[in-house]
Design a protein around this nucleic acid. Structure first.
Lengths: 106, 106
DNA sequence: ACAACATTTGGTTATTATGCCATATGTGCA
DNA sequence: TGCACATATGGCATAATAACCAAATGTTGT
């Protein structure tokens, strides 16, 4: 891997890293339908609101979401909706593994 | 996020985590064309071979690749080729960001 | 200006990931 | 059998991540 490749793969890895957390994936999924207020995540997730805020910050830094302050509240939305398409592939990996696992048990 | 959702998003996050490293992304990309021997990675990457072996193990645990020992060498291949399609989306995120960055500079 | 609210940021600690070295395992060949 | 090669595994030091609490920031309504 040369220097140029290194830069490319670092940049890509950053996107994957941002998505590599259950809470952030859940948030991303929520944003597929429509933008959401941070307060909605706070209500639905059982973690400290500061934690949620940091997760949102990671997604924002990675360029996956963008935010928008309206009054007291901050709304987040997906910047690049194609993210969701990959979930089918991810599910395929999981199902494939489940199948293999069953084979081993039988 | 309820208990069932938690399980789903944990499983998905595991896949993303496996891909969330430049070296592992690079390896994955190499495997898109054809299977590869571990030795090829050792030659092309400037890290200890034990490190490469561990990266491959992470990808294998996640169900992204499978291996196959032939003689002294071990060959790895992609188990679920759809992984690559996502790269287009990842590139879109990166380009979008680059564009915005340029705007800010001008 | 002040209080109440929504969110972000800083600090601390616990957990996890990474990379190297040394060692173990497995394979083919002399 | 014994040696050389290819890969995997265990151990350890260091770095990165995640969660919480506390405090700061910014906004609306009084």
């Amino acid at each position: 891997m040369n220097r140029k490749e290194k830069l490319i793969y670092d940049a890509r890895a950053k996107i994957f890293k941002a998505l590599a957390h259950p809470t952030r994936l859940w948030i991303t999924q929520k944003l597929v339908d429509s933008e959401r207020c941070v307060c909605e995540f706070v209500d639905e997730l059982d973690v400290d609101f500061s934690t949620i805020s940091k997760h949102l910050s990671v997604l924002k830094q990675a360029g996956i979401v963008e935010d928008d302050k309206r009054g007291k509240q901050v709304y987040y939305r997906l910047k690049v909706p194609c993210i969701l398409k990959f979930m089918h592939c991810v599910e395929a990996v999981i199902e494939y593994q489940a199948k293999e696992h069953n084979k081993l048990i039988k």
